[in-house]
Design a protein around this nucleic acid. Structure first.
Lengths: 318, 318
DNA sequence: CGGAGTTGAGTTACCGGTAACGTAGGTCTA
DNA sequence: TAGACCTACGTTACCGGTAACTCAACTCCG
């Protein structure tokens, strides 16, 4: 029996008799045969079922949610996630893009809209479906899914102004996921400026945006600037660190200081008060990115720009 | 110029003149040529630089740390992580194993020691380096990296007994990562039995092991069993949920109730007290697994069983 | 200066599938 | 019953690299 016949049976292409099918399947069973997908790809100059997904790091909970959304969707359409952690370095991203492209992925999902010139060139010449996520890119290389971080920062600033605050603080880190946090800070600063408030101090720690940096960042900011009235944090982890710092120091929230976070984490559900934050559907970003990518992969069209938006959670920490 | 000459130059195999090298590299530059790694693999019947990594889910923070440890190490040795989320289902794992093996990975890292019979058969016949992580397997298919969860549960039970507790509770979920949590519970129960205590109630919620299930699980357990003296939780997330429940209900810790978690999460660093927990170096598990795998991939030998151990953190919640 | 060794390059075959085409034998219809 | 058509299967070539081999030209040395 020729290998062509076996190939036809295995792909259920038709053009073979039931007797042949049974014979082929019996052999498959007997040999424990697993098709070599590498050869299939190679033969047709097709792409694999891999989708390269780059994220800045796994330590940040928001990205694990995004990644989960992506992978769940991909798996249900018989695709696999190839992980790339860029450590917030565009150079790392470039290296990873080059490597992963040489494996003929079906598509790519990149976190952030900033890439090195060579990375952009590689992506363009690879000519495969591509989604840039997280920070919405109105003129993406191919597609973009995310939200406008500047606007979300602006809205938070305006909300805090409406609460009567006049002296504002900010605590974030230089570990800035795809520059989105910087966009939020810029929006926040702009809103304060527009509203006649004063951004008295913005702290940029050289650390990861986690609980403890929020804790000691608050200490630093308050000791250098005791009359700041409200602090906007890079994310909820840092804000929760701040809340615990205040509890430890008997600083009352919101009477003595206002606290606002960003991103709404699951831990919010057990806190004794509602943290003022910005709700973002991280899982949805991942799912939508994967959906659009899969559409393009299968030859359909998908919207170039998808804004998942955000929702301000007033909370009671301001 | 023959493609063989170009191949030699690109692999820096030697056997070519400087003049030829320059000419080849100029062409590479001009064409924006990227080698097709698929063809390389195919040609030599080699494996790819992919390493399949299966984890139960990404929602559980401990696994993201393990994954981060794995990926960092793999990347530094020019390998890539292909993600597999098994959703705690062995059937899902089996499907994923079959798919990922057809792509000729360099090796596999699987979370948990339980697999379907067919999965084991596939793994054996694939005959590639394999590490089973998390729950230490003293007779692994190939290699194992992790810790003895039963022992860690036993130690926690013994510790709590030594604190004078007599009526014990447990709150966990059926969302049991690779059955490790069940091993911990079994160890805990055994210690209590050996020490003459009483495990009055063990609650197994049909939920994810997160903050909120810890919150309402505590409520459930305390309402059905008000005189339980100390509760051991499946993980720190749940324990922290419990702490917040107690704070909300003015139940004093540790005077009215003792709380013990497992796994030590970063949030512990900002809590107003030290949570009694079991410290496990998740990142180390990932790194060690990747290291051993890479050793085997490169043809060296690696230890079959690596115990990363655990350390009880007494804390002040008991 | 002839033969052996070295260097730089080309030629051929192959990996495991699949597209495209070929063909034997049967069926159907005018 | 001849020719058209279909069905089930086989044959050939190819994807893009690389191993293994060949070979021409040059170098070296007794």
């Amino acid at each position: 029996m020729s290998k062509m016949t076996a190939s036809r049976v295995l792909r259920e292409e038709g053009g073979y008799s039931e007797k042949t099918r049974v014979k082929v399947m019996a052999e498959v069973e007997r040999l424990g045969y697993l098709p070599n997908r590498i050869a299939t790809v190679f033969s047709g100059d097709r792409s694999t079922t891999f989708v390269g997904v780059s994220i800045p790091d796994l330590g940040n909970e928001v990205f694990t949610h995004v990644l989960e959304g992506i992978d769940r969707k991909l798996v249900s359409f018989n695709h696999q996630t190839v992980l790339g952690m860029t450590q917030h370095e565009l150079g790392e991203e470039e290296n990873w893009i080059e490597t992963v492209l040489s494996w003929k992925p079906a598509g790519l999902i990149l976190t952030g809209r900033a890439h090195t010139p060579r990375a952009v060139q590689l992506l363009r010449s690879a000519n495969i479906p591509l989604v840039e996520i997280w920070d919405l890119n109105s003129s993406p290389i191919d597609m973009s899914v995310g939200l406008n971080h500047f606007d979300s920062g602006y809205d938070m600033g305006r909300f805090l102004l409406s609460k009567g605050y006049a002296r504002f603080g900010y605590v974030g880190t230089s570990h800035d996921a795809a520059n989105a946090a910087t966009s939020r800070l810029n929006g926040y600063a702009k809103a304060i400026e527009d509203g006649g408030g004063k951004l008295t101090r913005q702290l940029c720690l050289n650390d990861i945006p986690g609980f403890y940096p929020g804790f000691y960042g608050t200490e630093q900011l308050l000791s250098s600037d005791p009359d700041v009235e409200v602090i906007f944090f890079q994310n909820d982890n840092m804000a929760i660190g701040a809340v615990h710092f205040c509890q430890a120091q008997n600083i009352r929230i919101p009477e003595d200081i206002g606290i606002a976070g960003w991103g709404e984490l699951p831990i919010a559900s057990v806190l004794p008060y509602r943290l003022t934050t910005m709700q973002v559907n991280h899982l949805r970003i991942g799912q939508l990115a994967a959906e659009n990518l899969l559409l393009k992969i299968s030859g359909d069209t998908a919207s170039a720009v998808s804004d998942v938006g955000f929702r301000l959670v007033p909370g009671d920490t301001v």
